[in-house]
Design a protein around this nucleic acid. Structure first.
Lengths: 224, 224
DNA sequence: CAGTATCCATTTCGATACTG
DNA sequence: CAGTATCGAAATGGATACTG
């Protein structure tokens, strides 16, 4: 946290916030992650040592509190941390509008499914258990197939077959589904183009787009 | 500009924006600076090589355009760059509320006067020329005295005696005036406490607080 | 689960001087 | 005015393995 040597509040704030990964950790905390390994899933490319370091920096700066209950550790944003919401929001809106080029390295099936599985329209699911399977033919086999198991009171994301029968199977390019999630393309467009294939009983197939909510930034209007 | 390997728009935006100095350069551009050495005055601790590099990064990213007219070079924000305004705004508001500790290294008379001289309430000045002198007894002599010369159509900041007779002389601790500028303390408070001394004819002395506008963030409400 | 420890390649950037 | 050139010190952080 090198200083800029400026009294300007923008400079003082950025001394803290422009450190690599910091705002992404804050984003995860704002999204509701509260435990170390939960945060790690939101920033999978960050080493645990670095995450630990950033959390301590955030604590020193008074943005995060740390509570222990037995050996369970919980991180919570303070009011100062919660007030970063408008910043994360405006950064995300800006990024949505102006940084539209995604490299192949930006695509990540785990992260995509992690995001999607915690943004399902639960009320739209039928009673009982619903199993969705996602297959990405263009991804190395180890990360190519994912299951989301939805029951009344929980949603599980699995990278190994949970053993239940699959209700709806989605086969799609990783980029296509990522772009749908981001709101760059419409679900029915990639469906019609054949880039995304849905299998299963017709009523469930038709329900799928109502189950899947999009990123919080998907609705941001794009530049004309 | 290392990638985060995430498709999240916050991550994609921060790949660009979390590079050291970048948002301060943008802040200067948003404030209206358009030329290289003008920008340098707003980020005095940044080396010219690094400023040049950041400007090129911003150009590549499509946030800044560069025009040459003869050998006069002008940098202008594109629409994408202009739309960083809400980000700079929210970062500044947050910094104003939550990063209130200023180290001595954050104080800078040149930067303070540079900011103040371009935020004067020009309409409140008398006709003709008005000369303000600021003296900081706690600053090394080379940077301890500054003059602001206000005429109908321009405002000059000088670090050497411009030779005109001084209308209002201000003597103050650097920290006190900085905190007034930031809105952390009130002008009349530091005046009454004797931390700031004003000399000159009574009408001009009384007019001084109306001439000096405060930082754009001074009015941000502080946490209760 | 919640982190530490270690290690080094790579990057970054600050300082200073210089140029067309 | 608008930058380049150079250089070395510092730090950053990625990878990997390990621990209570």
């Amino acid at each position: 946290m090198r200083s800029y040597g400026q009294f300007c509040p923008v400079a003082k704030a950025m001394e803290l916030l422009d450190e690599r990964w910091t705002l992404l950790v804050v984003r995860e905390l704002l999204m509701g992650s509260r435990h170390f390994n939960e945060l790690r899933r939101g920033v999978p490319r960050m080493s645990p040592a670095l995450l630990s370091k950033r959390l301590r920096t955030l604590m020193r700066a008074g943005l995060v509190d740390r509570f222990t209950d037995g050996n369970r550790v919980t991180y919570v944003l303070t009011p100062a941390g919660e007030e970063l919401h408008p910043i994360v929001e405006s950064v995300g809106r800006w990024g949505t509008r102006w940084i539209t080029q995604l490299g192949d390295a930006d695509l990540d099936p785990h992260l995509l499914l992690w995001d999607m599985h915690r943004n399902l329209e639960l009320a739209a699911f039928p009673d009982g258990r619903t199993v969705l399977r996602f297959t990405f033919p263009d991804v190395p086999p180890a990360a190519a197939t994912w299951w989301i198991v939805v029951t009344r009171d929980e949603v599980d994301l699995c990278d190994t077959d949970p053993g239940h029968s699959v209700d709806v199977a989605v086969t799609t390019g990783l980029r296509a589904l990522t772009e749908v999630w981001r709101g760059d393309r419409r679900f029915d467009e990639v469906l019609r183009s054949g880039e995304l294939l849905v299998e299963g009983p017709a009523p469930l197939r038709r329900a799928l787009p109502r189950w899947l909510k999009l990123s919080a930034f998907a609705a941001v209007p794009r530049p004309v």
